[in-house]
Nucleic acid binder design. Structure first.
Lengths: 217, 217, 217, 217
DNA sequence: TATGAATGAGCATTCATTCAT
DNA sequence: CATGAATGAATGCTCATTCAT
């Protein structure tokens, strides 16, 4: 199993933008620094130095420090998030996941690895979401589109087959996400313990969810 | 159902300390300001003004801005958290919660209300936890003590009666917390939607958990 | 009565220069912006944007921001000021101003209207004069040439006829200018009051000057 | 003849304020620097260095650079200007100036010396007036009060005795000020020529004004 | 000739912290 | 214990100017 690297996808997105190499560097190092130290604890001179550009260059393009964050957040929302979502859905389709258990096993492990792999980037976004409701709204809309679309179709098929409880899809997704998050959020936000066993965690989560989401008898 | 106010408990704890009234005021307004705007975006002069003290007073006792945070976090960890835990466990005992469903119903609703009620304070702590591993360790230890103690006893009783799946207590608690968190974390960190229906959320969560944590047949 | 527009004359002067259209645009918008906000409060990027040229273009020709000012001031001193002076003197000759009163009446009203009409441009020059002694020297020289030339001849004729006090011409001009300035300077530098009545002001000023400059009995 | 020093009066005013010695120093050197180089060309670090204080001190009290200017302008308008006006009027009364000529001679020479003496301070105020209409309004009101009060009374007495033309007092004052200004404004704003002969200028101005303001026969 | 990305010194301002009173 | 004036390093940002294309 091979999960996307948000950092890589972000770089690709930047490469397609009309930003100069130096300005791309600013955004790349900003993402890293914001992830490592937080937005408020990263100074613009630090960014300039790390990107190998002058302080003037940073502001010439992005106007304000907040503007740098926007210049990261917007393309991620517009391009990286959809790419990640599409690849995830594609993998679900490609991998011949016929019964719910196989489906969930794959999905859970995949997202768990994705979360761990992209810890720092998720942290930046989560922190920014707590101040910027627009991001929350955008991501919510994208999630709802997914649930109303392909993901919903898949869930419905499992319901029809009597493998999945007949709850609204958003409620089912809430428990899926919540359960996965109960494993990965501590890794992301608190001590990232070296001994985190994603495979075991996936099995455990699957076990729990297969019970919790089984159809009522 | 009547949940603790962390703010109130914190004030009581301060009242028992040997801090002067002015210094108590500093800590109280700091907690509020940190919650509202974040630690980094709150200046010490802002604290001084809001507390009605001079700028010197803020530092006389607490040495540094970080020291103010510690002077909040430490008593909360040392006194407020135990009081909250004790009251929670006491309520669980007092309320004649004999079967698992009744027990979980109460516990879930109680903690959900607690979380919503103390949103801002939880936010301060969560943010501080993401940079201070000590707090994580301390809270982890307290949680483990709970699970090893009274809470574990209660869970064991349900297991013995065949009402609860025979998983390690920490795993069970993880799913309990994760499921409740899937409802309250968005309220705490992102848009606190006015129409959040804690009662309905509690029923839904209970429903899910009762299935997920049912013993294997 | 129809007074010169410094702005128009300046444009004509530019049109005769070997400057490209873009560079002419730079000087034109610079004059306007300097007048509106002052030299120090006008940035070169602001000029570039307003002129519709790149930032590089601004400096390609004029080297420094101060150079832009010089490129405005010099042609104005070299061409616009002489044109204004010549036209003024020509009008004085053309209009059959035989006696002092008619002469002064015309001159005062004409210059008052000129000052009000070209308020902003005068302001730029006045501000620049207070830091650049060269302009003062140049303008002084031009004034002296006028007084030594045609204007002096006219004044002398009035003296010879016994209509004008026998003071040095520069002294007479000082009072003429000072009296007109006592009306127009407040308009130029402070609140430009909408209700300024140039005709009435001219009559009053004339009245006063006819007394003050009458020959001793 | 001994004219007020605005600088001295300003210092006295500051001494009566509740500003600390360092903050008074900030205002004093600011007044000087603003006069010498203009507001925009004076940096706050320059002010701090010249005042012998840290940059923080400058802003602790005055919040913004504009705030420094206000902290100079306001006390001058509130205290220095009235003191200057009062002293001027007192001197006019004390000096037994019975006929118009003696009166004007004294007044003209006194104000001319005052203007030359306080060149730099007048420059600061004039520059600030061209951006801040409030100052213009305040000074206008004070001038009108003077003209409606003691100064008006004096002028009326000369009118009654047939020594002074029967024009509105404001008009008479306009010519007085304008004529004096025609001598001193060039000194203040342009090259302050070393050879300026205030005594001679006063005599000339008096001569002109005595003619211009003589009553109609 | 014109462009516009890049520069880096400089600016106004903020901030946590100190210390004499 | 409390004050608040004073500090000076650091911050986000602007600006005139340069230079490769």
């Amino acid at each position: 199993m091979q999960v996307n690297s948000v950092e890589t996808l972000f770089k690709k997105t930047l490469a397609n933008s009309k930003l100069s190499a130096k300005q791309q560097a600013v955004l790349q190092v900003s993402l890293t620094l914001f992830a490592e130290q937080g937005f408020d604890r990263t100074s613009t001179s630090e960014i300039a130095k790390a990107a190998g550009v002058s302080e003037g260059t940073v502001f010439k393009q992005f106007k304000t420090k907040e503007g740098i964050l926007q210049a990261i957040v917007n393309p991620v929302l517009a391009h990286v998030v959809p790419m990640v979502a599409t690849e995830f859905l594609d993998e679900l389709k490609t991998n011949d996941l016929n019964d719910l258990e196989t489906f969930l096993q794959y999905a859970i492990q995949d997202r768990m690895m994705f979360a761990v792999e992209n810890r720092l980037q998720i942290k930046v976004f989560a922190q920014e979401m707590s101040r910027n409701p627009n991001i929350v709204a955008t991501l919510s809309a994208k999630l709802e589109a997914m649930v109303a679309g392909e993901l919903g179709t898949a869930l419905q098929r499992f319901k029809d087959r009597g493998e999945l409880v007949d709850w609204p899809n958003m409620r089912i997704v809430r428990y899926l996400v919540g359960t996965v998050a109960s494993y990965v959020l501590p890794q992301i936000f608190f001590a990232p313990t070296a001994d985190f066993d994603a495979a075991q965690a996936s099995r455990d989560a699957l076990d729990f969810l297969m019970h919790g989401l089984a159809p009522a008898k």
